[in-house]
Write a protein that binds this DNA or RNA. Structure first.
Lengths: 111, 111
DNA sequence: TAATATACTTAGCAATACAAAGCATTATAT
DNA sequence: ATATAATGCTTTGTATTGCTAAGTATATTA
């Protein structure tokens, strides 16, 4: 299953976007959902049932790590995700694939 | 299930591409596989097990119609698919969605 | 005559995106 | 004071999807 993420490209866009956001700064789940909604102008409206399984999967695959924050004062403890070296590599690969994929689609639909 | 195709946007790229090819001229299954391979520069390498179910689905949904060719001489009979009015509408909608979708992705991954 | 290309079909599988629900806490509004 | 909404994480179940794999059949090429 070496090519897993590549093969899932069409579905793998979400993985790519999550990795992108995490490559900028470590974040927790709910935050990712909100940021994705904002930055995509309401196009990526992830449900928890979509995002969290993605995070668990990526953690299993070594693309991200997680750790619970120690809550300061009244704060609730949150689970922060951080991208790993392997995750950065995967993100790069996914971006290249996305370019090829989307350019190809564009060419075909523009006659 | 009115929004079916819209909701499946990420997976619906294949449907969009097939509709696009059919909007240019009626075609048969194998031909679609070959053309898609060519025009996408080897990026969309559809298997029969992927394409034919898509065609059946779209026929069920009234986006395309099919008819068997009467074989001339030695020719094998082929099942030609033609896009319908509803299929053209769907194609337009899918293209608009694709633009919004891909532009959104591009913005996010380009920081 | 064997292999390859063309052409369509189907069964079965793994992965995914989602709905939906639950749990717990904090903030806001009534 | 109490209800509601928002935040935050998790899990279960479901429909859809893309694919593997196999099967059927004919035509062409080696």
């Amino acid at each position: 299953m070496r090519q897993k993420y590549e093969q899932q490209m069409k579905k793998g866009v979400l993985e790519m976007l999550v990795l992108q956001l995490l490559s900028e700064k470590e974040k927790y789940g709910y935050q990712l959902i909100c940021e994705l909604k904002e930055r995509s102008r309401e196009i990526f409206l992830l449900k928890e049932g979509t995002l969290y399984p993605i995070l668990y999967r990526m953690e299993d695959d070594g693309l991200v790590t997680s750790k619970w924050s120690e809550p300061r004062g009244k704060e609730v403890s949150k689970k922060y995700y951080r991208i790993t070296g392997q995750g950065k590599e995967t993100l790069l690969r996914l971006k290249l694939l996305w370019r090829a994929f989307s350019e190809s689609v564009d060419e075909i639909i523009e006659d």
